[in-house]
Design a binder for these strands. Structure first.
Lengths: 328, 328
DNA sequence: AACTTCTCTGTATACGTTCTCAGAAACTCA
DNA sequence: TGAGTTTCTGAGAACGTATACAGAGAAGTT
C-alpha cells in the first residue's frame, strides 16, 4: 500500500517535483496547461500530499493541537472536547484527543508522545498527582494550557471553574432548606477541584455556624458504585446525614441511586446531570458552560501559538445554582 | 521554541548523530561510557526524538490509528472511544479521535487529513450521506474498519449492532404489554441503523397483525428537543399514540421529557440511558456492550494493519432487552 | 536594439531521522 | 604472531516535501 509521492506525480505529468509542489500549494506563475496536467496526474494516481514530510521542513507547523483528558465517557470532558474542537477548526488545526484514565503514567507517556510528534500546542487536564516537574519541563518546550486543574508553580495559562464559590452556594442552599447534617462526597482528594469544593462546603457550614463533623466527609469515590455505597452508609446510622453534597456528576449519580432507597434527603451536586429534572425529587446542581471552558482554553492556546508572550493568565469561569427535579 | 535535534545532542556529547540514534533506539554495541555521555546530553538539552522525521523513513510506521465519530458528547460514541483505545494501547499505537458532527464535508476533510498524515489505519463511523466513492477510494489506500454503519459496496471490514433484531424485540415487548398505537421516533432516515430499526419495528407490528399507521412514524429528530416536540405531538390528538419506540438514546431522552406530561405511556428505546432506572415509570431499553464494539473494530483493524488479507468481515454484535424504571 | 521586468520551470539542498557500509580497535583462537 | 571475529563508531545516503537560486523565454520600456 505505498502511497504515490510528488515524484511519481511529476513523472506521470512530465514535470519536475518542484512544479508539482507549486501546483499543490496553489502558487502563482504556473502555466494553465502545466497545472492541468499535474492535476490530472494527481487525480489519476490518487495522490495525497504527505503531511509528515511537509511538517519536517523548518517553519512548517504541524497544524495540530492535542487535548489530554481523563475520560471521554464523562459528559464534562466531552463538552470540553466540543469547545476545543470548534476553536481548533476555526484556526484550521486538527485536534487530537487522548485520554489518561486518571493514570499518571499514561499521562506522562501521552504527553511525551505528543511532544515527540511536534504538536503545536497542548490542552491538558492534569491527573491528580503532583508531578509538577513533567508539566514544568513540557511547558517550556511547547505552548500549553491547563484545564480544570492547575499544577502549582507551572508557568502556563489555565482555565478553571469557580469550584469554591459553586460548592459554597450549593451547601448554603441545603442549609437554607433546613438541612443540618450535610455530608460531603468527594473523589480523589489530591485533585485540586476536590480540595476547592470541599473548602467551599466547609465555608458554607462555617458561615451558618454549623459544626463540621468529620464523619460526614467521604473521599476516594472514583466510580458511581463507590459513591452509591458511601452515600448509603452516610445516610444511615450512625452517621445519619440528612443531605448530601456530591463533588461531581459521577458521584451525584451514585448518590441519587443510594437516596432512592431513603425518604427525604437533600441533594446538591457539582456538574449538570441529564434526566435529573425528571426525577421525583428536588436536586440542586451547580452548572456552568463546559463547552465554553474548552473554547476559552483553546483560545488561550492559539493566542500563545500565535506568539503571545503575555503574562500567565488564569481564567475562572462562573457557575450557577439551578434547581432540578420535582416534588413528588 | 526550537526543539533540540539529534545533531545538537551529538555535538554536546561529542559523538556522531548516528550514535545518538543508536542510544535512543537502545541498540547493541555501544560502549557504556558513550551511552552515558549521550544520555547525559539528552537529559541536559531536554531532547525529544522528532517522531515526524522518524516516520518519514521508509518502513517506519506512524504507530497511529484514527477514530472518526459523530459526536464525542454522546455516551454511545465515547464508549467506542474507550474500547478502541484499549486495543490501540495494547498494540502500542496512539489513537487520534476526530469528530464529524454528522457533517459530510467535515468527514471528508477529516479523512483526507488523516490519510495525508499517514495514519496506519482508520476506524470510521460514516455520516449518513452515501458518498461511497470517498470511502471506496480511501479503503484502497489505508486499512479501514467501519463502525455502526456500513457504506454499501465498500470492500472493508465492519462491526455493527443487531439493529433490526433489537428494534423488533423492543416493539414486540410493547405489543405484549398491551399497547396498540406504537409510535416510531427516528433520526436521519438516511442513516442505515435507522432504516434497520424501523424495519424491525414494522416487522414486530406485522408479526402481531397490527396495522402500521404512517402517522405514527416521525423522522428527522436530530436533537433531544426535536424528539420531545415530535413525541408531544404524537402522544396527543389526532394521532393519540399510546406508546413510543425511540430509535436512539438522544431521542429516548426527548421522549421521556414529553411523556412526563402524560399519564400512562409505553416507552422503549435503543441504547442504554443513565438514570432511567430511577425514573418513576417503566422503560424498556435495548442495550449492548458499546465498549466491546470499539474493541472488536480496533481488533479487526490491527489485524489488517498486521497484513491480514482475509475476506471482508462483517461482525454483528447482539443486543439485549432490559427493563428499567419503576412502577410509581 | 538593448535593457529591464515578468512569467514559468528545473536543479539542488535541507529538514531530522534511520540505516547501510565501512573502518578501527579490541578480542579470540590457532 | 597472524588471521579471523566481535565490538564500537562515523560518514553518508536516503525518506517526501518546500524553497532558494538560477536560467530561459516573453513582454514591456527606454
Amino acid at each position: 500500500m505505498r502511497q504515490p509521492t510528488m515524484r511519481d506525480v511529476a513523472k506521470a505529468a512530465g514535470v519536475s517535483p518542484a512544479t508539482v509542489s507549486r501546483v499543490v500549494n496553489d502558487e502563482r506563475y504556473i502555466r494553465p496547461e502545466t497545472r492541468a496536467a499535474v492535476e490530472r496526474a494527481i487525480a489519476e494516481l490518487g495522490f495525497h500530499r504527505n503531511e509528515i514530510a511537509r511538517t519536517l521542513r523548518p517553519g512548517q507547523a504541524a497544524n495540530t493541537v492535542a487535548l489530554v483528558i481523563e475520560d471521554p465517557g464523562n459528559p464534562f470532558w466531552s463538552a470540553i472536547i466540543r469547545g476545543a474542537e470548534q476553536i481548533a477548526r476555526r484556526h484550521r488545526h486538527m485536534l487530537v484527543v487522548g485520554s489518561t484514565g486518571q493514570d499518571y503514567d499514561q499521562e506522562r507517556d501521552l504527553l511525551r508522545d505528543l511532544v515527540r510528534r511536534r504538536v503545536d500546542g497542548l490542552l491538558v487536564v492534569p491527573t491528580a498527582h503532583d508531578h509538577v516537574d513533567l508539566h514544568h519541563e513540557l511547558a517550556g518546550r511547547v505552548p500549553m494550557v491547563f484545564i480544570d486543574r492547575v499544577p502549582p508553580g507551572v508557568p502556563a495559562d489555565s482555565v478553571v471553574l469557580d469550584s469554591f464559590g459553586g460548592a459554597q452556594r450549593a451547601a448554603a442552599h441545603l442549609i437554607s432548606a433546613g438541612y443540618r447534617r450535610i455530608a460531603y462526597l468527594g473523589g480523589d482528594p489530591a485533585v485540586h477541584t476536590g480540595a476547592a469544593r470541599q473548602a467551599g462546603y466547609r465555608q458554607a457550614l462555617a458561615d451558618a455556624g454549623l459544626p463540621c463533623d468529620p464523619a460526614l466527609i467521604s473521599l476516594g469515590n472514583h466510580t458511581v458504585e463507590d459513591a452509591a455505597r458511601s452515600a448509603a452508609a452516610l445516610l444511615t446510622a450512625p452517621v445519619n446525614a440528612d443531605a448530601v453534597f456530591a463533588d461531581n456528576n459521577r458521584i451525584c449519580v451514585g448518590v441519587l441511586h443510594a437516596a432512592a432507597a431513603h425518604g427525604e434527603v437533600g441533594i446538591a451536586g457539582f456538574d449538570d446531570v441529564e434526566l435529573v429534572d425528571l426525577l421525583p425529587r428536588p436536586v440542586a446542581l451547580i452548572t456552568y458552560d463546559a463547552v465554553e471552558l474548552g473554547r476559552q482554553a483553546a483560545t488561550l492556546l492559539f493566542d500563545r501559538i500565535g506568539g503571545s508572550t503575555a503574562d500567565v493568565r488564569r481564567l475562572v469561569l462562573p457557575t450557577t445554582l439551578v434547581h432540578r427535579g420535582r416534588r413528588s
